[in-house]
């Protein structure tokens, strides 16, 4: 099996890149910390200044870990959506699940201002938790709606359209909420919408990583189902797959992943759509037994790279993650796809 060996090497290579990016994420930032010092802090030896230790352990490490986990989760979620809808344009946000999260957040942010009289941004930690909960409630309710709809409708395309419609509906409500809100709250909401890996701190980060560490392996249980869904409903069904149940399982799995990531990092665009395509091209397979781990590592690596760029000296953390994911990621993915086309023609 030549292909299997090649894939293992590729996976290991990407893992290595992840380690490298992880380390770079520790080293680079607005405060200059020498590499040796970073190494000492990470391996817990030597006496480095407390401020440096704080920067590494309280800021850079949580941020990098969040990026890693979020990237992996979104990429897997995107892969599942693309397979279940057999649509290359599908992604984690396609079913309006992230719009649901936005709606939840919009409700909390914009209402707390107009009703409670306090801007949420002043509430600190409680505000942070409230935002996460609102996002999860919002996205999971949209997902429940989608799952309910998938019971009722037969076609994939119909379901996809319903999802997109729900997304529009959520955005419309957000628009109305914005219209009646004070400027300060709108700014809070807009900043949330730009996405960030640095919002999660301390205990919350641990919770986020733990949840994802459970969910991502769970999503791996669906590989055979996903492989069968590739063949189309008719063939999958003939091979003994219960299509309705499979569809609901995959949508739920993918939806929960998106919901959790969105709750902690805001709606991160692009990664979930692009990484699966990148993996298909690089690994040249459509077998989910390879694509799933591939998306996991590729998504993590790409998210780390984006986080790195967003924090490059000069930007000082001012660059929103969403701008970086799209600005840097889109040309990279496009060029890979273009090169692939050429190879195909030459064959």
């Amino acid at each position: 099996m030549k292909a299997a060996g090649r894939n293992t090497i590729l996976l290991l290579l990407i893992l290595l890149i992840i380690c490298l990016f992880l380390f770079l994420n520790m080293v680079l930032g607005s405060v200059h910390i020498p590499m040796s010092a970073v190494w000492h802090i990470l391996t817990d030896q030597g006496e480095e200044p407390q401020t440096w230790q704080n920067i590494i352990w309280k800021s850079r490490f949580p941020q990098a870990l969040t990026a890693l986990v979020a990237g992996a989760g979104l990429s897997i979620s995107g892969l599942q959506m693309q397979t279940v809808f057999r649509n290359p344009l599908a992604g984690p946000s396609v079913l309006g699940i992230s719009s649901g999260a936005s709606l939840g957040v919009a409700f909390v942010v914009l209402f707390s201002g107009s009703i409670g009289g306090v801007a949420l941004s002043h509430l600190g930690f409680i505000g942070e938790v409230a935002l996460s909960i609102a996002a999860i409630v919002g996205s999971l309710s949209v997902m429940a709606l989608i799952v309910f709809a998938s019971h009722k409708v037969k076609g994939n395309v119909t379901l996809l359209i319903i999802g997109v419609m729900i997304g529009y509906l959520a955005n419309a409500i957000i628009g109305i909420l914005k219209y009646f809100s004070v400027e300060e709250d709108i700014k809070t909401y807009v900043i949330w919408g730009l996405g960030s890996f640095s919002r999660v701190s301390g205990n919350q980060m641990m919770l986020f990583v733990t949840i994802m560490a459970v969910l991502i392996p769970l999503s791996f249980l669906l590989v055979k189902t996903l492989n069968l869904l590739l063949l189309g409903d008719g063939y999958a069904r003939n091979l003994g797959l219960n299509i309705k149940r499979a569809r609901i399982l995959v949508i739920t799995c993918s939806g929960v992943l998106t919901a959790i990531v969105t709750a902690y990092c805001g709606p991160i665009i692009f990664l979930g759509l692009a990484v699966p395509h990148l993996c298909r091209v690089v690994f040249q397979t459509s077998d989910h037994r390879i694509l799933m781990p591939a998306c996991l590592v590729m998504g993590a690596a790409l998210a780390l790279a984006c986080n790195l760029i967003a924090r490059m000296p000069g930007f000082e953390g001012a660059l929103p993650v969403n701008s970086v994911t799209a600005l840097i990621g889109a040309p990279v993915v496009a060029s890979v796809l273009f090169r692939k086309r050429k190879n195909e023609l030459n064959e």
Partner: peptide, 15 residues
């Protein structure tokens, strides 16, 4: 389906 070999497809028949 892109990126699936004929042998892989036939293998799906064993599902």
């Amino acid at each position: 389906i892109r990126n699936m070999t004929v042998r892989e497809l036939i293998g799906m028949g064993r599902s």
